[in-house]
Design a protein around this nucleic acid. Structure first.
Lengths: 266, 266
DNA sequence: CGACCGATTGATCGACCTCAACACCAGTGG
DNA sequence: CCACTGGTGTTGAGGTCGATCAATCGGTCG
């Protein structure tokens, strides 16, 4: 690992970690994002504002005692953590529709949300209404499902980092991202809104290794790169064959409470 | 990694993964576990039963559509995942008071709960009441906090696996476990209810490395081992000095909703 | 054009894994 | 009492994977 002064040399690392430069912050009248799980609460319209972030901009909160969420409306972001010597770990990727619980991005722990591409974030600060929301079953159910889904992803990430080797990690990453972005079919183009170093920080590797592995995967015909930030999955079966785990299903919701029309299993 | 037939050679790995031998399953009249976050719901008493597990016994569920929890009342367990070639990753450690959401241990994904030591588990199956509980704000708040806390731990685990080297991981592990088990002071004895291989599967290393690292830590005076399963943290400051992250605070709850008597930060 | 940044690629190094041998311990059976 | 066994932990020798370091290339921006 590089010492802190080297790894934090770029502007992105240091200058933007401490404050979030708000490019645009306007109250948004109506939320038309289908995937957003926190819509439909009358309160929200009073509480949210739309923020535009450029690549590298970050969001942080200064208190754990807050009820605040960041919903990705456009673009791709990441929840990051920085160690005291400058090592960075991307803890999770956030794509359209994902809801980030801001209380987990407190600056004491060196956690923050970071835009990997140009992003539109809907910030919802519900702290003033936390008392009444504490009694609102629909709201509590919604944020429970959000946390449940995030936990599922995180658990997957733990398995990946703990027991997959570097090639498997990259293959899994490319396939999972393709599925999350809706490119389940062969030939669909996936936008890869991250640098090699971002991928490395997500997968616990370093950027040289990422680069090497990507060229090997390209040569072996699993994926094709149209540019540095666009790829196509060519051979799903080969991918499945090279992974010791199945790719995650993309359930629309967390499925913890059985829905009305389904058989209840006891 | 060893091939599956070798790694699954022990009884623990294969025979017990598919079914949970119930050593004792009696309805428990009253729950006196202070740390349990799911008590105080009238419904629970009708729904729960106490199960005694021996080391190696496992619990699984066969449906994602269930509202079932396992609460550790005594002993230490782990949420595990096995890959198709036999690699195992311990996704999280569960100690007294921890609440495991059973729907995340469905057998399709090769997830399960496993007793690392002799355990008493309170199994709470609330599936029949999921309809009314979906409207119960207190219950929803409780399980939200459970998930929030689990997510915090998982995120920590991701950082650990992604960016700490083997020595740092073991040091962090020993210190964190000591704190979780209440041995914050120098000299307090910590019970280590796991084999070297369990630790390895938790930290993404292998058991030989664990053994090597433990002897080095012992020699350097950070910890003292009374036996293979008991240790004492000798030098907290040296531990903090050798870690690039601070040890997690052990908050009593998730602190996402501000409590009544605290200043609300907006 | 030069400065700069990110990506690529090769050479080398070191951390961790693999494999094997051995120690230790509890249990079992003579 | 000893021999034997199986399981777990320890330790050393050697190999491999991924990190590190450096050189080069390509693109972008001033």
């Amino acid at each position: 690992m590089k010492p802190i002064n080297e790894r934090c040399g770029s502007v992105r690392r240091v200058d933007t970690c401490l404050s979030a430069p708000v490019r645009a912050s306007v109250p948004c009248k109506s939320c038309d994002l289908q995937a957003c799980r926190l819509r439909d609460f009358g309160l929200l319209k009073r509480a949210y504002s739309l923020r535009g972030l450029e690549r590298g901009d970050t969001l942080e909160t200064h208190s754990r005692n807050c009820l605040r969420f960041w919903i990705v409306k456009q673009g791709t972001g990441a929840t990051c953590r920085m160690f005291s010597d400058g090592r960075r770990q991307i803890v999770s990727l956030e794509t359209t529709g994902d809801v980030v619980c801001a209380s987990m991005a407190d600056n004491d722990n060196e956690h923050w949300f970071e835009a990997l591409s140009e992003c539109k974030i809907c910030e919802v600060n519900l702290t003033p209404w936390s008392g009444e929301l504490r009694q609102n079953a629909d709201f509590l159910h919604a944020i429970f499902e959000v946390m449940h889904k995030r936990l599922e992803r995180s658990v997957n990430h733990v398995s990946t980092l703990g027991r997959l080797d570097s090639h498997e990690r990259v293959i899994y990453f490319l396939a999972e991202l393709a599925l999350r972005l809706g490119a389940r079919d062969d030939g669909k183009i996936v936008a890869l809104p991250m640098s090699r170093e971002d991928i490395a920080d997500y997968l616990g590797l370093n950027s040289d290794s990422i680069s090497r592995i990507l060229t090997r995967l390209r040569r072996s015909g699993l994926v094709r790169f149209l540019s540095r930030t666009e790829y196509v999955v060519l051979d799903w079966s080969a991918i499945a064959q090279r992974l010791p785990i199945s790719l995650p299903e993309t359930f629309p919701n967390a499925m913890c409470f059985p829905s009305q029309d389904e058989e209840i299993s006891r």
